[in-house]
Every structure is written in structure tokens, then in C-alpha cells.
Nucleic acid binder design. Structure first.
Lengths: 143, 143
DNA sequence: ATAACTTGTAACTATAATGGTTACAAGTAG
DNA sequence: CTACTTGTAACCATTATAGTTACAAGTTAT
């Protein structure tokens, strides 16, 4: 199963906040851009707030980023909304009387962690500012 | 959601096949080591066979690897059983009248692909032989 | 104080995915 | 023929995902 779209929706939301930092965007407005229900946006924003990536205020529109886009990595956003320590599921309760059954998890875990970290390092290397730059390029392309 | 345990179970199975290449292991035996139902093993083995990683014969126990463990990467096993072209789910049907809505997928896709490929490259760098070596180390450790 | 708007959260819903089980057809070997 | 094996379909319970509805609490303007 693919990693939840929550992640890309969160990037979408944060991009909008960054590009409209002089405006107070409502969750309804953000939901309109994403084409989803405002509650979905609010949930995600709750997570982003929990992770100190944005500031929000009950009853008041206009969430703001806590940092500049250059200082917000895709990894930080991923961590905020996916909240899953490990990428690979590992089967459990193997037969310990079998040599492989007794050791397979340990034999695998370091390698799986390395693969996960490679993915995470790649995400850490991309900032929200990079996404915004891409959007500017794409927007000019479309004209 | 974590990547399905099918992947680690598949590695488990192939490890057993490699370590017992002089024996005809049944799916029941493999299931015993994994501690699951033989049908689960058979399904996975169907996929491994489809991907030319093992050879099986209807009615006859004793699946064999098609290549030596050094020539079988974790990535090949992952591809055989997970069968999912993209790692990250991307929200669709965004609002095209919004600049961000119109461009976010394209702005993100290259970066997400890079993260996926980083993970895959890491898996490609680990062979079944590496897992077997780890198991030998761990087995000697346990004595 | 009130109305309109906003955020935040719970509960519900439909669907898909996961990981298991049961059943059995088809194939194999003795 | 019998016992065993693989291969596959169908079923099941649970969990996850992504949406909806409802509404309490907070804010702002009048």
C-alpha cells in the first residue's frame, strides 16, 4: 500500500500557506485547492501544528508557517503527518526452533533501516522552497 | 501504512530455500518456519516464480532459486511481491484554477521519485547472500 | 448579547488492503 | 489407487484510508 496521500496534501497546504503569507487562508479555502473536505485539511493541520511546523488559532483563520520554506524539509512534513517509525512491516512470531525463523528479523532489520533512511535522507534534502521554485517554473511554463 | 510483511516473508522463504538447496522443502515446512498458513506461502511463492526468482512444479515439493544468493537483491524480491510502481500516494483531482492545485503533483513527483529510488537503490545493494551471512553470524552468536 | 464565521474533534461511512482460513481442483510419485 | 503437493478461489475479520456529518468552543463584528 502506498504511503498515504496525507503527506502530499500536507505539502500542498504548506505550499499555499507559504505563497499566501499575507493572507489569512481558511481551511475551506485550502480544501478547495486540494479538492477535499475542510475537516480533512483541519486534521492534517492539527498534525502539522503538533509538529511545530505551523501555528493555528481556534476560531481564527490564517495559519502561518513557523519557519521559512527553506528550513522546512519534506521529511519534516512526512514525519508530522505519517507518524510511522518504520517503513517496512516485519512478520513476527516466527518459529524460533528454526535457525532462519530465529534470526531473520535481526538479519533484516539493519538493511531495512538503511533503505528507510536512504528514503528519508532524500526527503530531508528537499525543502518546501524547492517545491515552490518548481511551481514557479511550471507556472511560467504554462503561459 | 507499512510496506506489507509479504516482503520480509518472501525473504525468509528464499533464505530457507538457499540454505536447504539439497532438500525438497514443502510449503508446509516453510509455513512452519514463518509461522503462517501454507497458502500464504504458496501465494508469495507464486509471485516469486512469476518474477523468475524461483522455480516450482505443481504437485512436487522442492522449489529452487533460479540464481545464486549473491545475484538476488532485496529489491528484486520487493518488486516481485509488493508489485507497486510508486511508493508515495499522490492526491488527485486538485483544483486546476488554483496555481498550486494545478502544479503540485508535477512539482512533487520528481522529488518523490528520487526518494523512492534512494530506497530502492539501498535495497538493490543488499543480496540474499548478505542476509544469509548475517544469519550465520547471529547463529554463531547465539551459541 | 447575538450572529456569522472559524477551528478542532468525534463519530460515522464506504471502500480497500491485509493477513489469515477453508475448500478443492489439478498434478505428482510410489 | 492413495497420499501428498502445488495452485487458486472464496471467504473472513480486522485495520487503514479518505471522505462525510455534527457540533462544541473560540473569535470577531455589530
Amino acid at each position: 500500500m502506498e504511503i498515504s496521500t496525507k503527506f502530499t496534501v500536507a505539502v500542498h497546504v504548506m505550499t499555499l500557506l507559504a505563497l499566501n503569507k499575507d493572507k489569512e487562508l481558511t481551511s475551506a479555502y485550502l480544501a478547495g485547492s486540494v479538492n477535499t473536505n475542510p475537516v480533512v485539511i483541519r486534521r492534517i493541520m492539527g498534525q502539522l501544528k503538533q509538529a511545530d511546523l505551523i501555528l493555528t488559532k481556534a476560531g481564527v483563520a490564517g495559519a502561518v508557517l513557523t519557519r521559512s520554506p527553506e528550513d522546512i524539509s519534506l521529511l519534516a512534513i512526512y514525519r508530522a503527518v505519517i507518524q510511522q517509525p518504520t517503513l517496512f512491516g516485519m512478520h513476527q512470531d516466527t518459529n524460533l526452533t528454526c535457525t532462519v525463523g530465529a534470526t531473520i528479523q535481526q538479519a533484516l532489520e539493519g538493511h531495512l533501516l538503511a533503505a528507510q533512511q536512504a528514503m528519508e535522507a532524500s526527503l530531508a534534502n528537499v525543502s518546501l522552497a524547492d517545491i515552490i521554485a518548481s511551481i514557479h517554473v511550471l507556472t511560467n511554463e504554462k503561459k
